[in-house]
């Protein structure tokens, strides 16, 4: 079983996704610094960008809990880190002209989009720093959230005590940028493998790109399709399932922070009327997908959903799972449900 999975990986990781027509963007920080700008022009841009950020004050914060000036100014520094070849010498004004990875017009354009269009900073620079990874992201792919970093720690904890889980087959359902699949692949043992699925061809293309950047083509297999569908060949073979599925109730989508509601894919956010359509589907499917003793960890909207799902599993899936519990995120919200398939 394992062998049949390993063989196609090397050729499949990228080509298996039918999205060959879709070419992921290169994050700004990986582009060559081929543009030259005079120090004075760049300083002028910097002043303009700072004043644009300052003009926001707490308007967005009051409007929809968006970023305030302070946060925007910090993002501006990160934009400089990603686009200027030698950010330090720019700040110290010891270099002229300055080499940049995008042209000056584009710098104006990008910062305008950030502030005026509320385009997420991560889409502007084309990457997100997540755990110890820098993952490529772009429009059409959910930006991985800091809360989700914890799922990798939860997996790391369970595999430490269990060799079978450490060397087994895992799945990341609705992988988006591939964050969870890559994070988990890096803590698994040498025989551990992850299949990452996503319905969106943009997501599978971006996830494949990220998998390649971390040289994990041998360990992570990206497949396009809805939830468990691409996993049918390995039904019952999984030692672990993780997912950060869409969980926001449909009626709340309209009121989201502009960066999220206007720019991130609804497919990755909207969990239907209760927000739990996909989570319930995952809990239902986990029974037949997991090996006895297998582990699952799903992210939820928080306390209410987690409580509901734990109750759902304990009553509707009676006897199928053990040690089902809620786990809090750093903010104390019961963000995750975890458990084991009964033996």
């Amino acid at each position: 079983m394992r062998l049949s999975f390993i063989r196609p990986i090397s050729c499949c990781a990228v080509s298996s996704s039918p999205s060959t027509s879709f070419k992921p963007q290169t994050p700004l920080f990986l582009r060559p610094p081929t543009f030259k700008t005079t120090l004075s022009d760049l300083k002028k841009w910097h002043l303009w960008a700072k004043s644009l950020a300052s003009s926001v004050s707490s308007t967005f914060l009051k409007l929809d809990n968006g970023p305030n000036s302070e946060l925007l100014l910090r993002e501006l520094n990160w934009l400089i880190e990603d686009t200027i070849e030698t950010p330090k010498s720019f700040f110290q004004e010891t270099i002229n002209p300055v080499s940049t990875r995008v042209c000056l017009d584009e710098l104006y354009n990008l910062w305008k989009q950030r502030v005026e269009k509320r385009r997420p900073f991560q889409y502007i620079v084309g990457c997100e720093h997540w755990r110890d990874l820098v993952l490529s992201v772009e429009e059409g792919v959910l930006i991985p959230r800091p809360e989700t970093e914890l799922i990798v720690d939860l997996v790391d904890d369970v595999i430490k005590e269990n060799e079978e889980l450490k060397e087994g087959l895992w799945a990341d359902l609705g992988t988006g940028s591939g964050a969870l699949a890559i994070g988990i692949a890096r803590v698994l043992g040498s025989d551990g493998r992850v299949i990452a699925t996503d319905l969106s061809p943009v997501a599978t293309a971006v996830a494949s790109y990220n998998v390649q950047r971390y040289d994990l083509e041998e360990k992570v297999h990206v497949k396009q399709g809805s939830w468990f569908e691409p996993l049918r060949d390995d039904e019952g073979e999984f030692v672990g399932l993780v997912s950060n599925p869409p969980y926001i109730p449909s009626k709340e989508i309209g009121g989201l922070q502009a960066e999220v509601g206007r720019h991130e894919p609804r497919l990755a956010l909207d969990g239907g009327e209760s927000g739990m359509n996909d989570l319930i589907h995952l809990c239902d499917g986990a029974v037949s997908m997991l090996k006895p003793g297998g582990f699952f960890a799903f992210e939820t909207n928080g306390d209410e959903q987690s409580k509901f799902l734990v109750h759902y599993i304990e009553t509707k899936k009676q006897g199928n799972f053990s040690k089902v519990k809620m786990v809090s995120d750093f903010a104390g919200i019961k963000r995750f449900i975890t458990g084991f398939r009964g033996r």
């Binding site: 809990n65 970023p67 946060l71 910090r74 993002e75 997420p120 900073f121 991560q122 959910l142 930006i143 959230r145 800091p146 809360e147 989700t148 950060n244 869409p246 969980y247 926001i248 709340e252 989201l256 922070q257 960066e259 999220v260 991130e264 990755a268 956010l269 992210e299 909207n301 928080g302 995120d329 750093f330 903010a331 919200i333 963000r335």
Partner: peptide, 20 residues
């Protein structure tokens, strides 16, 4: 004891803020 500086609100997918 680890604490993070977070603003109020539901967090998770609702939120895009790099307050890390």
């Amino acid at each position: 004891e680890l604490t993070t500086f977070k603003a109020s609100g539901p967090g998770g997918q609702h939120r895009n803020k790099r307050e890390s």
